[in-house]
Design a protein around this nucleic acid. Structure first.
Lengths: 178, 178
DNA sequence: CCTTAACTTCACAAATTTGTGAAAGTACCG
DNA sequence: CGGTACTTTCACAAATTTGTGAAGTTAAGG
């Protein structure tokens, strides 16, 4: 990295789009991330995720994320680890270089919403045991059983719904990969 | 509390359900509440909510909640305030007495799931502004627009789904009030 | 191999959240 | 009107969470 000619020291221009106001981008990132945080997502992962979402390429390096969000490499590392586990970003090792790159696919976002699946399953397990412990023939047992039935219904519906979305998405946006 | 005849001091057997083990109830409450907490719900509200869910009547006083969960009146107060705001429990002022009673309807539970509605709407607002700021004709703008479209789709689907559940519920459980 | 760029882990300090006791507020009842 | 039985609010201590700097690890490139 010793080529002053292809000066990449100031990468403020990062985007291919000229008229973009970095201030505006930042405002959006902070606002939306904050709302995701209110809904239960940790703050750093939320900020990193939204920063990626609102980048033109959908790909950023660790350094770029750190610079834009003003956070340490450690914070970036923690955030992307979490996001990978949730399948919200994928990590790519850039072949000719030492840096990792992180990418959002448009698709991963709602896949993740679907992946509440595992959580739901856990709730259902707990409820099933609760019904048994409390007695299926008691008022409390019946109440739990109904809740359980609701979640089972929900899980099924969500699957069908995502199928419909895939169709709809093609209609609206075509089937570009990303 | 001075009527030995209608002895309600030991309510272990309360009359209706003989075989109930308070230990088992407590285990269920703690387990399920803990899972709700993992999913983003605050711990005290989760515990209070599940305690109500797994009571036979679906109604408990502040004192009963405090005793069963071993928490202070202040903690109960905070938890039920939160739960009321989320429409997860309703509060009733018992006419002949000074204590409040808190009640779960089976129905409120999934109504609450639906009430993510407001959250979704907030996300959509943020995204709309984001699309505008970043430019609808940029790659980033298009990515945000797709996310927005997904949420709009989702909102519509959820409404239809809840309608279907209401029907299904009647099939399964009849249309009892609670 | 050795150097060096990048990522990760770890211990810790700062900030935030949580639950409590105590005081203050409400409203039923005599 | 009190008196009393609850409930709520408030200040604070304890516990948890969060982000950092610094040391440790891995792997590209000479």
């Amino acid at each position: 990295m010793s080529e002053p000619s292809t000066d990449r020291v100031h990468r403020t221009d990062a985007g291919a789009v000229p008229g973009r106001d970095p201030e505006a981008v930042s405002r959006f990132v902070e606002r939306f991330a904050s709302q995701l945080a209110d809904a239960g997502m940790q703050r750093m992962p939320a900020r990193v995720f939204v920063a990626l979402l609102s980048s033109d390429t959908g790909v950023m390096t660790s350094a770029e994320l750190g610079e834009q969000l003003r956070i340490s490499p450690a914070a970036v590392s923690g955030a992307v680890r979490y996001l990978s586990q949730q399948h919200l970003v994928s990590r790519e090792r850039e072949p000719g270089s030492r840096r990792d790159r992180y990418r959002v696919h448009s698709g991963q976002w709602y896949e993740a919403v679907t992946n509440r699946d595992a959580v739901l399953r856990g709730w259902e397990d707990a409820l099933r045991e609760g019904v048994q412990q409390l007695g299926a023939d008691t008022p409390a047992g019946r109440r739990l059983a109904e809740t359980l039935a609701f979640f089972e219904f929900l899980q099924d519906e969500i699957n069908q719904m995502m199928e419909r979305w895939r169709v709809r998405r093609k209609e609206l946006f075509g089937d570009d990969k990303d």
